[in-house]
Design a binder for these strands. Structure first.
Lengths: 258, 258
DNA sequence: AAGTGGTCTAGACCACGAG
DNA sequence: TCGTGGTCTAGACCACTTC
């Protein structure tokens, strides 16, 4: 073991010193992604502390997303999963005209297996925030498309789309299989030529429900993105509320200088 | 105290049940932002568990960013700090021509006190990633502007700008006081009319250094944004690497449908 | 069976904040 | 001074993985 010692005379708590030393070793490459750290028992011996102190140090590193514990196996340096880069042209009409939905176009761009699961479609009254963004009244209903996206089998994103029912009712948009090019292609076929999107991006820690749906360990935040699609009459025709595993995405934007 | 009980016969660990119950109470509004939760001693009594079990439950909620502990005072429901909304026109030329740098324009838009501190300016060889984005060789130097932004006195963002030295040397860009409109205004005066920006957005947990610089408690991620500015000859004239307290920002983007 | 991490107990002493 | 959370100990039993 190439780990240093700790100095109990210092002001810095023992568990922090242990966390510091382990962090240094990981960042110095002494433990590589996927490698196991010394067991808790070994760390107790090495640093001469009680088990709870070792565990507290490991908890710090878990909270930073640096390591993950696997019950019965050990504590391992986190493997950075492959990152999906979302390009700002992902909603380009050219993709739709080739029959590709946005998620498909993104996935093909980086040659990764992609899939949708847990798709549900329903009609309901929208939440207040969605209602306001769509410019609807309290009586207007929306078609709700709720689904989860997988990348190489790993869940990476949940997305809920809301489309005004007066647009979507009776169309493929209200059908679980929305057809080639996805719902944006259908909206354009219905005469709602898409003109622009707005996206609002936030980051935060996941709720327990989100952590479970995305299989997130401790120390992995989510990116919460709300997109609104506007047609050429500047009507909001869709709100899409997405929650992404932050360690699986990089968002790319092109911003023209005005 | 309106908290429910836990059932030790259940499979779910006691500390999780306690965390669940406290989370429910917070989300139900039984404890409002800024309110104090019952003390650890009270929770021990109420749930009939040892102190470490109570602390483990509180740790879960801290990791979710739901509560913050204050030594000697108690554990409090986190106050959502006011959020800065970054609009995608924040680099508009019109703002620069009125003498406003981007951060100033953003702050004025939401009438919040803003400031810059810890500003350092130096000349150095850039990190590899920056070198590549700027299209420089291994011998080219850059002017490095490193600073921290405060909003209402709270540190919310650190930013490091890299400008090729052949552009910036001997100009106000290499001066701590870059003048009205900021370095983008100076770049345009030097003939580099800005044409577009690219932004890459990631979210992750902060490093200890970042957490300290931004005063982040547990459970608050950072948004890592790298912006590249291109002039009308499509030369990359600046790379800006920023780290933002995720609980202080919402990023807004307008994306035209291509 | 042996080794690993997960949960939990029942204490101890310390550092900080408020009265 | 007293109540608060922060650190730490020295155990115990359990659940999971590997051999």
């Amino acid at each position: 073991m190439t780990l240093g010692r700790i100095d109990k005379a210092l002001d810095r708590p023992a568990f922090q010193q242990i966390a510091d030393e382990l962090r240094r070793a990981v960042q110095a490459g002494e433990y590589r992604p996927g490698d196991g750290l010394p067991s808790e028992a070994q760390l107790m011996d090495h640093f001469g502390v009680a088990r709870m102190t070792v565990r507290q140090a490991l908890q710090v590193l878990k909270g930073e997303g640096l390591v993950v514990a696997e019950h019965g196996r050990g504590v391992f340096v986190r493997q950075r999963p492959p990152v999906r880069r979302l390009a700002s042209d992902r909603f380009a009409r050219a993709h739709r005209e080739q029959g590709k939905a946005a998620f498909t176009a993104e996935s093909e761009a980086d040659s990764r297996a992609h899939a949708v699961d847990r798709l549900t479609v329903s009609t309901a009254l929208p939440p207040l925030e969605v209602r306001q963004r769509l410019g609807l009244t309290g009586r207007d209903r929306v078609v709700v498309r709720d689904r989860r996206y997988l990348s190489d089998g790993r869940p990476v994103e949940t997305a809920v789309s809301y489309i005004p029912a007066d647009i979507a009712r009776g169309t493929k948009i209200a059908d679980p299989d929305s057809g080639p090019g996805g719902i944006y292609a259908r909206l354009e076929e219905l005469g709602h030529r898409l003109a622009r999107f707005t996206e609002e991006v936030e980051a935060r820690m996941p709720t327990p429900v989100e952590a479970s749906a995305l299989g997130l360990g401790p120390g992995v935040p989510v990116i919460h993105l709300v997109r609104v699609a506007y047609d050429d009459a500047d009507r909001a025709v869709e709100v899409c509320d997405t929650v992404m595993a932050a360690d699986a995405f990089v968002l790319n934007y092109d911003v023209p200088a005005l």
